[in-house]
Simulated assay, not measured.
Amino acid sequence: VLINNQPFVINTENATVEKIEPNWRQKILNTIASPEIAILLLLIGLYGLLFEGYNPGAILPGVAGVICLLVAAYALQVLPVNYAGLGLILVGVILIVAEVFVPSFGVLGIGGIIAIVFGSIMMFDSGIPGFGISITFVVGMALISGSFLFWLVNFLIKLRRRGPVSGQESMIGGIGFAMESFTGSGHVWLDSESWAANSSVNIEKNQQVKVLAMNGLVLDVEPI
């Protein structure tokens, strides 16, 4: 070997070989620093935060999403990342979300899946052995993204069809029962609460009633 431009001979004939095995911490960090694991954590983190945004109060998806993103940030820090590929993955997720709000007939969603696929291929295209992405993994990412798009569209369609779940609009058409026999003013039980009610016809105690209108805190009802 050359040290300060001076040749030195290292005699290793009788050298002792000592194997140093990685400890459990190093094994975990090495697993996390795998390109495929890094991309998977990144997508899980993004989708977890999106799910929490569409379903506030779920808590678990949001917490899991933040944890996965932080762990993915560690992995991306130690890996040779192509930031053009990372940008494509982020754009792909944005396009999938935009598909829900823009009537593009699937164009944005399909474009998002394509962006995620190419982003996954480009993200670790460094030519370094051991840092490649398998085609099986890329296909799996495409299927996961497509499944998330399908779920997201169906979730929002059901949400829009459900209609109001609170306020005056949610009371109209509600079914309850009379707490007493009355004609005119009385009380009914609806949504686990007692309500003042008016009826132009006679209603018997425990008879089911339907809400026709709501005037302040008084319900207009009719017997069923």
Rank of each mutant, 00 (worst) to 15 (best):
L152F: 11
K210E: 15
L143A: 13
K19E: 12
A38Q: 03
A72R: 02
A84V: 13
V138D: 05
T31H: 11
G132P: 07
L217H: 11
A75D: 04
G87N: 02
I89G: 03
P35W: 03
F137M: 03
G109N: 01
M214K: 15
S145E: 05
Y74C: 04
S194L: 08
M123D: 02
I28Q: 02
V1C: 10
V9I: 13
S199W: 02
V221H: 00
L108N: 02
I67C: 06
R160F: 12
R162C: 00
A142K: 08
G92R: 02
K27Q: 14
V218I: 15
L46Y: 05
D191L: 13
L219N: 05
P61Q: 09
A142P: 02
A58L: 12
Q26F: 07
N154M: 14
Q208F: 10
L29E: 12
D220A: 11
S34F: 01
K158S: 14
L79G: 03
S145I: 00
P7M: 08
N198L: 10
Q207F: 06
V153K: 14
E193V: 00
V165E: 15
L40H: 11
V221G: 00
G186T: 06
G127K: 10
E193T: 09
G186C: 06
R161Y: 13
K205S: 13
A213K: 13
F148Q: 09
V139F: 15
N82P: 03
E169V: 03
A197E: 04
F118T: 11
N198K: 12
N215G: 01
A142M: 11
L29D: 08
M171N: 03
V165H: 13
A64L: 14
A15V: 09
G45I: 05
K27I: 13
G65Y: 03
E204Q: 15
L217W: 01
M171Q: 06
L90M: 14
N82C: 05
G146A: 07
D125R: 12
G65K: 03
N206S: 14
A98E: 07
I3W: 09
P223N: 01
P129Q: 08
L79N: 04
I67S: 05
L69H: 04
A98G: 02
F182P: 00
A197H: 03
P22L: 12
I203R: 00
S126W: 10
I96C: 06
W24V: 11
P35N: 10
A72D: 06
P61F: 07
V107R: 06
L42T: 09
S126F: 11
I44W: 04
L159A: 15
P103H: 08
I114H: 00
M141G: 01
N23W: 04
L43E: 09
S194R: 15
F177S: 01
V209Q: 05
A72I: 07
P103K: 08
S126E: 10
E18H: 12
C68A: 15
S34G: 10
A98N: 02
S170G: 12
G92I: 06
N206H: 12
L43Y: 04
Y47D: 01
G106D: 09
G174E: 08
F155Q: 07
M214L: 15
L217Y: 11
F131M: 14
G45S: 10
I39T: 05
F148T: 00
M214N: 02
M141Q: 06
Q6N: 14
P22A: 10
I224M: 14
A15R: 03
T136R: 11
P129S: 11
L95K: 02
G163D: 06
Y47M: 10
I224W: 09
N206R: 13
P80Q: 08
I67D: 07
L49E: 14
